[in-house]
Measured scan of single mutants.
Amino acid sequence: MAAGGDHGSPDSYRSPLASRYASPEMCFVFSDRYKFRTWRQLWLWLAEAEQTLGLPITDEQIQEMKSNLENIDFKMAAEEEKRLRHDVMAHVHTFGHCCPKAAGIIHLGATSCYVGDNTDLIILRNALDLLLPKLARVISRLADFAKERASLPTLGFTHFQPAQLTTVGKRCCLWIQDLCMDLQNLKRVRDDLRFRGVKGTTGTQASFLQLFEGDDHKVEQLDKMVTEKAGFKRAFIITGQTYTRKVDIEVLSVLASLGASVHKICTDIRLLANLKEMEEPFEKQQIGSSAMPYKRNPMRSERCCSLARHLMTLVMDPLQTASVQWFERTLDDSANRRICLAEAFLTADTILNTLQNISEGLVVYPKVIERRIRQELPFMATENIIMAMVKAGGSRQDCHEKIRVLSQQAASVVKQEGGDNDLIERIQVDAYFSPIHSQLDHLLDPSSFTGRASQQVQRFLEEEVYPLLKPYESVMKVKAELCL
């Protein structure tokens, strides 16, 4: 049975990233139509530049190519590739079939990587351009969430054990800070992308030097003109047959890092959902379990974690691919890159769409948070109580021993009897502590235990987050809708 299948058929496997999760716009960027249309555009740009620099290419040939950029006979191309065992030459023939007058000058002087690699770089750039505003929107939604809850005390956790208090907004800023680093890295790697350009079979530009009869300047002009037509500021000066596969490492490393950030955020949300302090959106008709109707599973956060793990592992592909590119190139890269580049971007696209949807509907339960604080705060307040007693004339050592005994009794009630923490009640009825009984409410005010959390939130948002989001103001209103 021949390899390949009808990918629109229910009898043929289709990647869930495309069929179930990723956005239509990201799927289109990695589609065959987008790819092969870009090949034709690159052939047109090459012909236009070659004509401008004096090669015998007519206006009629150029116009014929322009008129057929979208006229792609995919069936013919597939048949040609089956016959020739070469995808680029299959599309040269297919393009030439609908451009008979231009057929002889299509791909003039070029090698397969002229269309293959340059198209990949265009796709990487455009895919990054799709991700950047999506990530900015996630940051914006979380920034709104953090600002609104900047002063809401909550129990902090280290080692997932109760620690000092923080605020809900401050905790959210930990998430935002990681995503801001990801946004900066995505922008950097996007701006650092260079075009492969017009380089020939081993990167020496020998074929173009021959076409222009040894004119170095025209060869350099050709490279520059096509690079500018493709919208790049610069091209690699040095290439082998391909652009260095280190570029793929750079791009997928940034995406993998984004995956790590999203995994951490969504894990926190899942843990908070278990504590009943916070939940992701839950639709009115949504079913959490087929057997347990009360369940409210954090399905979206779980999906993000599941896909983020996949995204983090994909960076190993370009690392290994770059390491086995012998001399000017081997074909070890080809099949692998067809999979890992598309999957990385479709996965990143999915987790950003999902995280935006989550961040637009996060639900906080202040009463649950308050109750958990009441359970733990008495123990945390013991040092403040000791200091207040010393100020009232008591002995630190005597007070410490009193607190120690009462704390152990209260802990026994919590752990052995399943009761509430009654340390404060014990202190309130103990005559030894009568000098500070009137101060206990103040000493137990949760806001006095959150330090500068709310001020940190305000400063972080104003100095770091809002300036970073400013270039994306025009796209901030787009909502994230999930079908599944």
Results as ranks from 00 to 15, higher is better:
Ser290Asp: 01
Asp59Cys: 14
Phe460Arg: 03
Leu211Tyr: 10
Gly5Gln: 05
Val247Leu: 13
Gln161Asp: 00
Thr313Ser: 12
Leu469Thr: 15
Pro435Gln: 12
Lys276Trp: 03
Asp11Met: 09
Val262Trp: 03
Gln61Trp: 05
Ser447Cys: 15
Ser359Gln: 08
Ile287Glu: 02
Glu343Met: 05
Val88Gln: 04
Ser257Phe: 07
Ala342Thr: 14
Arg337Tyr: 03
Leu275Gln: 04
Asp192Met: 14
Asn353Val: 08
Ser253Trp: 09
Lys295Val: 01
Met389Lys: 06
Val88Lys: 01
Ala392Glu: 14
Ile287Leu: 07
Arg196Met: 14
Gly4Glu: 15
Met278Ile: 13
Glu464Leu: 05
Gly419His: 11
Ala18Thr: 15
Ala127Arg: 01
Lys75Gly: 10
Phe236Ala: 09
Phe157Ile: 05
Cys340Leu: 11
Ile62Lys: 06
Met76Lys: 12
Leu165Glu: 00
Met225Leu: 12
Lys276Met: 06
Gln455Ile: 08
Ile265Glu: 05
Gln356Gly: 10
Ala335Val: 08
Leu275Ile: 15
Gly197His: 03
His7Tyr: 12
Leu193Asp: 01
Glu70His: 12
Ser334Phe: 01
Val262Ser: 15
Ile238Met: 07
Ser334Lys: 03
Arg141Pro: 15
Trp43Tyr: 05
Asp332Ala: 00
Lys391Met: 06
Asn68Trp: 07
Gln41Pro: 01
Phe157Glu: 01
Thr450Arg: 05
Ala150Ser: 10
Trp43Ile: 01
Gly109Asp: 01
Met316Asn: 10
Ser407Pro: 01
Lys367Met: 06
Ile265His: 07
Arg374Lys: 15
Leu55Thr: 05
Ala206Lys: 04
Glu481Asn: 15
Ala273Arg: 01
Pro16Met: 15
Thr227Met: 07
Ala235Leu: 13
Gly240Ala: 12
Arg234Asp: 09
Ile403Lys: 03
Ala47Asp: 01
Phe195Thr: 06
Met181Asn: 08
Pro318Cys: 08
Arg329Phe: 05
Ser261Cys: 07
Ile139Met: 08
Asp182Leu: 04
Asp332Leu: 04
Glu50Pro: 00
Gln428Thr: 14
Val262Phe: 06
Ile386His: 07
Gln455Gly: 10
Ala410Val: 05
Gln428His: 13
Glu148Ala: 11
Lys233Glu: 09
Val324Pro: 00
Gln375Val: 04
Thr94Trp: 06
Gly240Thr: 11
Ile238Ser: 05
Ser434Ile: 09
Leu174Tyr: 08
Leu121Lys: 06
Gln61Gly: 10
Glu64Ala: 13
Gly418Tyr: 02
Ser407Trp: 00
Ala453Gln: 00
Arg85Ile: 09
Ile176Thr: 08
Val115Leu: 13
Gln428Lys: 12
Gln456His: 07
His437Arg: 08
His437Asp: 06
Ser359Glu: 06
Asp398Ile: 07
Asn357His: 09
Ala235Phe: 14
Ala146Ser: 10
Ser474Gln: 15
Met76Thr: 14
Lys187Tyr: 12
Ser15Arg: 10
Gln416Val: 07
Val405Trp: 14
Glu280Met: 00
Leu155Met: 04
Glu60Leu: 11
Gln375Met: 09
Gly214Met: 06
Leu314Ser: 11
Met312His: 05
Ser448Arg: 14
Pro318Asp: 02
Leu482Tyr: 08
Asn118Phe: 01
Leu108Gln: 03
Asn353Ala: 10
Asp144Trp: 12
Ala47Ser: 09
Met316Gly: 09
Glu417Leu: 10
Leu132Ala: 12
Val413Glu: 14
Thr321Glu: 00
Leu183Glu: 08
Lys224Ser: 10
Leu132Tyr: 12
Val92Gly: 07
Asp192Ala: 15
Cys180Glu: 05
Val262Cys: 13
Lys415Thr: 07
Leu46Asn: 07
Arg338Pro: 01
Arg149Glu: 10
Lys35Asn: 13
Arg196Ile: 07
Cys340Tyr: 15
Gln408Leu: 09
Asp117Ile: 00
Asp216His: 10
Ala411Trp: 06
Ala392Gln: 10
Met387Ala: 14
Lys229Ser: 13
Thr330Gly: 10
Leu468His: 14
Phe28His: 10
Ala273His: 13
His217Ala: 10
Ala146Glu: 01
Ala344Lys: 00
Arg188Lys: 11
Phe236His: 12
Cys399Ala: 14
Gly109Gln: 00
Asp332Lys: 01
Thr52Ile: 09
Asp430Leu: 06
